[in-house]
Structure formats: structure tokens, C-alpha cells
């Protein structure tokens, strides 16, 4: 399939995504599903109040531990209306950002694969939350988002339907979209 697929990508389309490598990886991992088993990690330390700092470093994949060139940190806090110091974005905003980044990366990859040159991609996200949930005021209200709305503005050498199809396909293959739209078992232990 690589043959036909690479043929569909004209050489002059460059969204900075190495589709050949991705397709190669897909073929390799299809043949060796053990190597496709990844584990992603983060560790978080409390700083003060609602302020915390997560560090992202190595992960497991392709059958072994993978090191990063450097560690990444993600800070989180709450705004002043929550009587906090607003050092950084709230965790739920980080979740929205994760969803946005995942979908946006997906749009670029799918566009490259389909031979569509992108000029700009902008995603704006908004999530509804009824605070009666987290504050324990009303048990019928969930803690998390009620609805999440994602709006894409895409400038690309493609028709309106082709752009819609890019965005739809990106959702179909997105990890964070799946994490947000489907339940996941979460196991929490205490040392």
C-alpha cells in the first residue's frame, strides 16, 4: 500500500510530516504487534496550594525504554476566582489543549497523506462545566465537561468537503479524542 499512498502525495506538498516514515511504522508494527505496545508517563509534584508541576520524560515503546533529549515540564494551577494564585493553566484547560494538539497534529498528518498543502490551521476549543459537580452541590451533575466544542479554521489547497474530511479523519484516528469520548478504567494506588 505504501506505493499507491506515496504516489498520492505530490512531492511539492510539505506540511512537515514524514508520511513515508509513519506508513513504514504502520507496516512494521502490523507485523510485530508487541512493538506497538507503548506506555506514556508523567509524574506530578505538588508545589503549593493548587499549583503543581508535572515532568514528562521517558516512555516505553518499540519493545524498550525510550529516552528523551530533555525533560518537559507542565505547570498547572487555578485562577484567582478559585482563590488560587493563577500560576498556570488549569488541568481541564490542559486537557482541552491536549485534545486540540492531538486533532491539529492529525489534520497535518492526514493532509500530508492525502497530498493537501496546508497554509494555516487553527483550532478553538470550549468546554462547558457546571461547577455544582466538583463542588458537590448537586450529585446529578458530573464533574467533567458537559459538552466540548471544537472549531477549526483551516486554510488549505482543498475543497470545503476535503477539509471537512481531513478534520473528520483526524478525529477518527485521534488518541485524545478517543480518551475524551470513551470511558477508560483508571486504577489509583497509594504507597
Amino acid at each position: 500500500m505504501t506505493q499507491t499512498d506515496t504516489q498520492t502525495t505530490p512531492a511539492n506538498v510539505d506540511n512537515g510530516v514524514n508520511v513515508e516514515a509513519l506508513l513504514g511504522a504502520r507496516e512494521a508494527l502490523d507485523a510485530a504487534p508487541e512493538a506497538a505496545q507503548f506506555k506514556w508517563r508523567t509524574s506530578c509534584e505538588w508545589v503549593n496550594g493548587t499549583h503543581s508541576r508535572s515532568t514528562v520524560s521517558g516512555f516505553f515503546g518499540l519493545g524498550e525504554e525510550q529516552a528523551r533529549s530533555k525533560d518537559f515540564t507542565i505547570e498547572s494551577d487555578h485562577p484567582e476566582v478559585f482563590a488560587a494564585e493563577d500560576h498556570a493553566a488549569t488541568p481541564v484547560e490542559i486537557v482541552l489543549s491536549g485534545l486540540a494538539s492531538c486533532l491539529t497534529a492529525g489534520v497535518a498528518a492526514v493532509a500530508q497523506h492525502r497530498g493537501i498543502q496546508l497554509h494555516s490551521v487553527k483550532a478553538t476549543l470550549e468546554g462547558d462545566m457546571d461547577l455544582q459537580g466538583i463542588l458537590g452541590i448537586d450529585d446529578d451533575v458530573r464533574n467533567g465537561f458537559g459538552n466540548i466544542r471544537v472549531n477549526f479554521t483551516v486554510d488549505a489547497d482543498a475543497s470545503e468537503d476535503e477539509i471537512k474530511a481531513l478534520v473528520a479523519q483526524s478525529q477518527k484516528r485521534s488518541a485524545v479524542f478517543d480518551i475524551v469520548t470513551n470511558p477508560t478504567n483508571v486504577f489509583v494506588t497509594v504507597n
Binding site: 468537503d161 471537512k164 474530511a165 473528520a168 479523519q169 478525529q171 477518527k172 479524542f177 478517543d178 475524551v180 469520548t181 470513551n182 470511558p183
Partner: peptide
Amino acid sequence: GLHDGKAQFSGALGNLCALADL
């Protein structure tokens, strides 16, 4: 998912319908 007699449905329905329409 199905937990304690409660069925959980994916929130991706809108996208699957959009894909099918396209």
C-alpha cells in the same frame, strides 16, 4: 462500556455520522 447495568456510549457519534455523510 457496560458497568453496573449502565451502558456507556461514545461521544464520537457526531463524527462517525459526519464521516458517513462525507
